[in-house]
Amino acid sequence: MIPYENLKTLNHPFEEQLKNKFALFLDKGWYILGAEVALFEREFADYHQEKYVVGVANGLDALILSLQCCGFKRGDEVIVPSNTYIATILSIIHCGLVPVLVEPDSSTYNIDPKAILQSLTEKTVAIMVVHLYGQCCEMDPIMEIAVHHQLKVIEDCAQAHGAKYKNKLAGTFGDFGAFSFYPTKNLGALGDAGAIICKSETDYLKLKQLRNYGSEKKYHNGVIGYNSRLDELQASFLRIKLPHLDEINRHKRKLASVYNAYLNDSFIKPREDTDFYSVYHIYNILHPERDKLKHYLLENNIVTEIHYPVAPQDQPALKGYLTGYDYPISAKIHQRTLSLPCSFIHTEDEIFHVIEILNKF
């Protein structure tokens, strides 16, 4: 059986370090917002050649706090891709803002800059881009739009740790870069965890307040805040794995290159472009008989996933927010996409076997 992912195997190379970190954590007796969080924030900032990083509880909170930091008015509009994971849209709704869904480019699955322009209104205040599957959005035209129309840019980098566009890292283009360190991510914790890259000291200080009940000083609350602190233990685990992020990304890129080279043309594969350094958090293909293909692979002991089986506009939770709109490009992607094994745990031989089975379909 070739699994889609196996977290126990994934973390096995780090097992002794993780156990040692836990023993130190237990012995130290400091569990919330301690030295490990501060050190991880510094190291994650250094990796991105940025100055300000704030650790938070998870990726959704990273998006929510980024929006809250902007001080938008209730009812303001935020442009967001129509084929994203629901968390991106939930962050907008939780902040009392209106999600305006925009179709992706059918060749990249990322938000289409031309479609952004067509969706601007006098209420538009921000663009929330999503670097889906580990490939950056086309950020030059997006940033040009944002600057020209004085819009904030929030990057959802949950799947793009170490991804680049024109040699610039995801999360460093806009006003905020929001990251999730969910265990399956290229940089994954052993539980929920997140972080925000921001550009200004003012936003940095406000985010630190927002994550901690709105408090800058203990028992003194300057703003309406949240309880969204990066866990000290998870920060220590992330510090172990961060130095290996580039190695993990290179391995996944190698596996993806095997798929790209040997998978036959009956499958639509990810587009390759020299402007983009994709880290393949997800290696997805499109096929018109996706469900039949998934079942066929499982019969041949190959486990796959679907990211994502239900489009946002079809989610019952969002029916009151996204009514009256049609998103045909997004719908097609959701109906046809299939995610293939492409993990740090997989070998090239395993990927060649997956390809052999796929090409017989």
Results as ranks from 00 to 15, higher is better:
Tyr283Ile: 06
Leu293Lys: 01
Lys199Thr: 15
Gly214Glu: 05
Tyr296Gly: 04
Asp291Lys: 11
Lys294Gln: 14
Ile196Pro: 01
Gly214Lys: 10
Ser278Gly: 13
Leu263Gly: 06
Val223Trp: 02
Gly225Lys: 10
Lys241Ser: 04
Gly191Cys: 07
Asp203Asn: 15
Tyr226Asn: 10
Tyr277Asp: 10
Leu210Thr: 02
Tyr226Cys: 08
Arg211Ser: 13
Thr202Tyr: 11
Gln209Tyr: 01
Thr202His: 14
Leu286Trp: 12
Phe237Asn: 08
Lys185Trp: 00
Tyr204Gln: 03
Lys294Glu: 13
Ser278Phe: 00
Glu247His: 12
His307Arg: 02
Tyr213Leu: 14
Gly214His: 07
Asp231Arg: 08
Ser228Phe: 04
Asn249Cys: 15
Leu210Ala: 05
Arg250Met: 11
Asp314Tyr: 15
His287Val: 07
Phe237His: 09
Gly194Cys: 08
Glu216His: 10
Lys292Arg: 12
Leu318Gln: 09
Leu238Met: 09
Ser257His: 11
Val310Ser: 00
Leu322Tyr: 09
Phe237Gln: 06
Thr274Asn: 10
Gly320His: 09
Ser266Ala: 10
Thr274Ile: 12
Tyr204His: 14
Glu247Trp: 05
Val310Gly: 00
Gly194Tyr: 09
Gly225Glu: 09
Arg239Met: 13
Asn260Thr: 02
Ser278Lys: 11
Ala256Met: 08
Gln234Val: 04
Gly191Ala: 12
Arg253His: 06
His251Glu: 01
Ser257Lys: 14
Tyr296Ile: 01
Phe276Thr: 05
Tyr296Phe: 15
Ile306His: 07
Asn227Trp: 14
Glu272Gly: 07
Lys217Glu: 14
Gln209Asp: 06
His251Thr: 02
Asp203Gln: 12
His244Phe: 15
Gln234Gly: 03
Ser266Pro: 00
Asp291Ser: 12
Asp203Ala: 15
Lys254Ala: 13
Asn284Lys: 02
Ile197Met: 08
Leu205Ala: 03
Gln209Met: 15
Phe267Asn: 09
Asp275Thr: 00
Lys241Ala: 03
Pro243Gly: 06
His251Lys: 15
Asn300Ile: 05
Pro309Leu: 04
Ala195Arg: 04
Glu305Thr: 08
Tyr219Gln: 11
Pro270Ile: 06
Pro309His: 06
Leu255His: 06
Asp265Gln: 12
Asp192Phe: 10
Pro316Asn: 11
Val223Asp: 01
Ser228Pro: 05
Ile196Val: 15
Tyr219Phe: 15
Asp246Asn: 14
Cys198Asn: 02
Tyr226Gln: 13
Asn227Thr: 08
Ile196Lys: 03
Ala256Arg: 06
Asn264Met: 03
Cys198Ser: 07
Ala235Trp: 07
Thr304Pro: 06
Asp231Ser: 14
Leu233Phe: 12
Tyr321Cys: 05
Leu293Tyr: 05
His251Cys: 01
Asn249Lys: 04
Tyr277Ile: 10
Asn227Asp: 12
Arg271Cys: 05
Lys319Asp: 08
His295Val: 12
Leu207His: 03
Leu210Gln: 05
Ser200Trp: 00
Asp231Lys: 10
Lys185Ile: 08
Asp291Glu: 14
Arg229Pro: 00
Gly214Pro: 09
Ile248Asn: 08
Asp314Ile: 01
Gly194Ser: 08
Gln234Ser: 09
His244Gly: 00
Leu318Cys: 10
